[in-house]
Design a protein around this nucleic acid. Sequence first.
DNA 1: AATGAATGAGCGTTCATTCAT
DNA 2: AATGAATGAACGCTCATTCAT
Lengths: 210, 210, 210, 210
Amino acid sequence: MAVQNKRKNDPQGLKRRILESAVQAFAESGMQGARLEQIAELADTTKRMVVYHFGNKESLYIAVLEDVYQHIREHEVALNLAVLSPEEAMAKLVEASFDYHATHPDYMRVICSENLLRGRYIRQSARIRSVNQSALELLDDILQRGRDAGCFRDDVATVDVHRLISSICFHHVSNRYTFNTLFGDNAQDRELVAQNRHLAVTATLRYVSQ
Amino acid sequence: MAVQNKRKNDPQGLKRRILESAVQAFAESGMQGARLEQIAELADTTKRMVVYHFGNKESLYIAVLEDVYQHIREHEVALNLAVLSPEEAMAKLVEASFDYHATHPDYMRVICSENLLRGRYIRQSARIRSVNQSALELLDDILQRGRDAGCFRDDVATVDVHRLISSICFHHVSNRYTFNTLFGDNAQDRELVAQNRHLAVTATLRYVSQ
Amino acid sequence: MAVQNKRKNDPQGLKRRILESAVQAFAESGMQGARLEQIAELADTTKRMVVYHFGNKESLYIAVLEDVYQHIREHEVALNLAVLSPEEAMAKLVEASFDYHATHPDYMRVICSENLLRGRYIRQSARIRSVNQSALELLDDILQRGRDAGCFRDDVATVDVHRLISSICFHHVSNRYTFNTLFGDNAQDRELVAQNRHLAVTATLRYVSQ
Amino acid sequence: MAVQNKRKNDPQGLKRRILESAVQAFAESGMQGARLEQIAELADTTKRMVVYHFGNKESLYIAVLEDVYQHIREHEVALNLAVLSPEEAMAKLVEASFDYHATHPDYMRVICSENLLRGRYIRQSARIRSVNQSALELLDDILQRGRDAGCFRDDVATVDVHRLISSICFHHVSNRYTFNTLFGDNAQDRELVAQNRHLAVTATLRYVSQ
DNA sequence: AATGAATGAGCGTTCATTCAT
DNA sequence: AATGAATGAACGCTCATTCAT
């Protein structure tokens, strides 16, 4: 009985399983391409229950988008960079960002898809915007400390640094297939990752340093 | 009669129209999301004729991919950078690349889609690889001249510089919707473009310069 | 607390609200087309409670049918026609019938739907039949008085007169959309109603009079 | 081979079969209640082909509406009433109308459904309106001849006569289930029909006669 | 070279009802 | 008396592709 009902009458658990399955499915196939059937299967439930708990596919997709960004930022604020010197903090932030992008390709794929939809859904969620405010605050603190210490330029905008870091980290994940097919020299994957990680840190530091 | 047959008995013209319509459609909706019906409509023909001339959707998509990369590189080699100083050449290359990305969002969208498909189709076309070889050659020449002139570092890899430039230029186009929704300060679009263009040039030069 | 529970713990009030909402919904969409969800919403409750109080959709529909016919006949017997002369009584009956049809389109729509179902549900309710007996009795009395007074024919059957009146009154409401679309001359609605009302009275009187 | 392909490559025949099946289905269940699957089955084809030939359910329904009215009017104009005396022509028109209604309950059911939809679809077809113009013209001719002959009143409007006839004929078919359940005296169906037919003729003649 | 007809598989969503408290 | 969770069945419609000329 307990086994039979293992997955019954636990709506919160079910919603969580559906959400996580949906992240996978939307990452793989996008908002339109993902199939409720597949999401249901991954969550060990039925299409019917997905609709029951999330209303429709679009609402589920928005919930996924919110989940993705919340995780990204939660990880970032947990880094505790304030105890490091500006250069060390900046380097660690870039490395952590790079690693997070690299280890969470599904999140990056969801963001790619959303951009292909011209941000049609992210625009609808005020919650996503508020969740992301921490990103610039955190970076701004490091830059300010660096300027005060005389090691960082005072003519770089916070948002530009964020964009630079994002560009390199995101590109490494999102464009890897075409870029490596065209320009890859068959290097081992591990080497390639290390090289790109180094590029991210170096390019950023050279951009912000005096 | 002539008017009635304006679009008949011109298979090459029809194929060209289908291909251009397909670029639009695949850019908008990706390989899976694009609809033959819509491509046919854009090309002022029928679904049946699209299949007739290109066999199936996948073959058409590969033809589109080849078309996209050929255009990108053709534009690049036409820049005639050899006559400029290394710094000027590098700056102009970045600016040109940035502008080309910005003015050809459809091409970038196709590349995004292809990466979401894990490069499944680009891998199948040897022609695309050969077409892209010019990119690194061109950049390598500038870097070498810069090193000879003593203004560029000799520890930067060509492919890394290409990746850095691509990252920033691509991100500006491909991630604009999410990035600007989350971190945009409602700046005018024109200002934003100018700022990002400047970021691309500056970050690249600081990365390669002594 | 009182406000919060305003609509709670009043099962009779809730049942009444559900029934009235059901009349609307079944009138709008028929037995099959009506949605429990919509009925629940109109009654400010949940689908679950509709089922709880009425068992299932069919039982609720039968309750609605009974409600409809009871109202129709209650109104008719309240006319107090016995004090009028036969002609006046007949005219007033027709006018009252016409007006009741015109002002209660929802009831007529329910009856239409039920006929489209071939009377499948009305047949199940003995109560409806007994409730309707007053209609012919009332009309029969007028006709008898008219014959006694020498002003009405003695070769018209009561049920035929009832059918004639019903036909015209019902048609005015139930067929108005197709009939007026096809044969309407864009007359003001008020004029059209007056004209049809006059037709009902005149045709009936000419049918029954010597 | 011939047998196997009996029902293939005959798009006109297929469209006709689908249309006739659709009349049945829409008559039985209305626009919303009818099922494409059932229509397809009746027409010995697939749901897919119904959509292929008619676009969607609503377009098919409109085609059915047009078919229904076209048949009704075609039958009417074929009566050749001009050769009869006004009274005979009027009587024959009413009888023919009554009989047509009685023998084509499906058409009446479709019209009922359409009125329950508030004429939403009939309004969309200009063709239906033009097809129906013959009805009033035909009746107007009889009335005019009757007035000229001195046997018909000159204060009855053509549209009112049409409405009166339609009311009785339509009611006989459309309201038979509820009316006979409530007021029927278990007469044989044949007697009942004859009685109602007589009522239609008599009530009409008494309405129009001097 | 070109095309109308045909098709199987599958999708997101809806709905009345039952389960389990 | 009241309710959140769950569910099977079905529906209209879409799509890339093939058939047959």
